[in-house]
Design a protein around this nucleic acid. Structure first.
Lengths: 351, 351
DNA sequence: CTGAAAGCGCTTACAG
DNA sequence: CTGAAAGCGCTTACAG
């Protein structure tokens, strides 16, 4: 169909082909490419011309075998279909690929044996480093990622007790800020829609909620803490639970541990006749793109997703390219409250 | 911190270590692993035990160098942050990783030189195959992906005239079905919100729109075709344009070339006082998760995203593992209309 | 500044 | 059924 460029078959040129054409040894070709300054100008020109004429590109498998590097990093993500991670991955990809690294995405959603396979892969030396977005150090039946002796960096979900750098936001502080915002608007009956109990993110955001209430002298009410697991579905369920409450005991505001649940909840209470924010103010967490599309737009904590990914990647590159092993160094990136349309002062009716 | 497993340093075992421990040659170890049936039971047991004792895993760079394969496939995606692709990637990842392939994601969003880098990478033999979700055969300044002589498979966005298999849905037919649905409800003034002119997806969906009108004997009105580019923003703009129209000339229904624009449009016309679907019925295209979360939920064509990815990956694997070069074979997967809350008969008022 | 040679860790004819 | 040996395509001391 489309026009092909010149020579149509022929296997890719190897370094020996270039050397022959340039009339030098393969060692010289290799050196010219690695450190051009070290060869004479004349040689350099001949080699470079030969490289061009043969469209030579080094075989990476061979180079990697030789220098015992792979130039790939493994990125473990809990769920690639979750929009929250898409932009993080973008930040990672930008930084990593600019530095010549390829990235293999280990999507942990799905059968648990996948995790083990990836651990084995890294232990077998198939990656130079690992980026952990999944909140735990991956393991297989009898091995741990640490047995691979490659640099590790964590991001997003803090891994307690880890001995490698981690890039996170201040979840406690951000959650506290979210709830303070509601309190400042005049709310005193504020519910909390939880994330999955197993994650540290949940514990941190709950802690922030508690702190904000406490410092405002508002008593925490256990009944106002609603179960959730970060999914839209549990947001819907919480919405139903709220609708089932009589108006006198219903909270006037709610802080959700993530946006997806907040959106599910808003949709549900809307359908049930409550108005957001008039009857119920809602604050989310994450700042996913959709939080700015929904109706009403969601007041939320927006995480610097791209920067989180980029910093984590940069940190890992530093670790992979220097001798000094893991100068443990956590980085905390700022997350900020985006004021939008889902919050307002409580309606006087219930005050 | 955490407890390490036994021997803490020592480089990973190589095949020679296993051979020594088992008292056989490296050839035998290699064979035992590749085709266990071919060695004697006694040998096999000794080798396997040694493999276990040394926690041996083959070095893939070395193997690849030897067999001249990379076991990686490149997946070119227009924009990794677009939720539409997330589930496609998941289908691809499931299939590919089950077959032992790693996947390198070429995110084409961003500087155009990235595309060239990826082309060079493939031409240099760094991938065994390429999955094109981007609607065109990637190219660098002087090369084309076809020069790499590796199998190619296209998916989602049909590439006209390509000589490799492609996995798509019937965009024309699906768009026609979407518009027929509106016609069946009684609408006769139906607008179309376009995608980017450069894509074949746009041309196909527009064609489906035209066909449906034509077969119903409804005259196509140029003024009802609104510009868009698949982004939320252009949906918002189209919404504003609609609001600016006087009620007599305003269409009673609209078919958007994708969900994101449909959602932006709905949000905008809502804010402007129109009710969806009562004043305006809207049908989208794609079936992204959010289409089922928004308010009202969006009637849309849902694409079998996971299956699209899985079939494309399966097709590529077939190509990579057999001699027969590209038995050109397109696959069309079914997309179906999901009836939800954004459509209803036109209100009598304007009829 | 340059070349000859070893070696990275594997697989696979080829003999036996 | 098994082993010795060549070779995949590179890089890097080591000499010169």
């Amino acid at each position: 169909m489309a026009k092909r460029t010149k020579e149509t078959r022929r296997p890719p040129a190897k370094i020996a082909d270039v050397a022959r054409l340039a009339g030098v040894s393969v060692a010289t070709v290799s050196r010219t490419l690695a450190r051009p300054a070290v060869v004479s100008e004349d040689t350099r020109n001949r080699v470079l011309a030969a490289v061009r004429d043969t469209s030579y590109t080094p075989n990476i498998s061979a180079r990697n075998l030789r220098v015992r590097k792979t130039m790939v990093v493994l990125v473990a993500v809990p769920d690639i279909a979750n929009p929250f991670f898409a932009e993080i991955l973008q930040g990672i990809d930008d930084t990593l690929s600019a530095a010549g690294y390829g990235l293999v995405i280990a999507n942990l959603a799905g059968p648990p044996e996948k995790e083990a396979r990836y651990v084995d892969l890294v232990c077998a030396g198939q990656a130079d480093g690992v980026l952990l977005l999944c909140g735990h150090v991956m393991r297989s039946r009898d091995r741990d990622l640490r047995d691979a002796h490659v640099p590790l960096v964590g991001a997003c979900e803090y891994i307690p007790g880890a001995s490698f750098p981690q890039i996170c936001i201040d979840n406690v502080g951000a959650a506290r800020e979210a709830v303070r915002h509601l309190i400042k608007l005049g709310h005193t009956s504020i519910a909390y829609l939880s994330g999955p109990q197993s994650t540290i993110l949940e514990r941190q955001r709950l802690e922030g909620y508690r702190q904000a209430l406490k410092e405002a002298g508002i008593a925490a009410v256990d009944g106002l803490i609603m179960p959730g697991d970060f999914t839209f579905r549990t947001g819907v369920e919480a919405g139903r639970a709220l609708l089932a409450l009589s108006p006198e005991v219903r909270p006037t505001a709610l802080f959700a541990a993530n946006d997806e649940m907040a959106i599910g909840l808003i949709k549900t209470v809307h359908a049930g006749g409550l108005r957001v924010p008039r009857d119920l103010s809602v604050v989310g967490f994450d700042g996913i793109p959709y939080a700015d599309y929904c109706e009403p737009t969601l007041t939320t904590i927006v995480q610097p997703r791209r920067e989180l990914g980029a910093s984590a990647a940069a940190e890992l590159i530093a670790l992979m390219t220097t001798e000094k092993s893991a100068v443990r160094k956590d980085i905390e990136l700022p997350a900020k409250l985006a004021l939008r349309d889902s919050t307002c002062p409580p309606s006087t009716r219930s005050t």
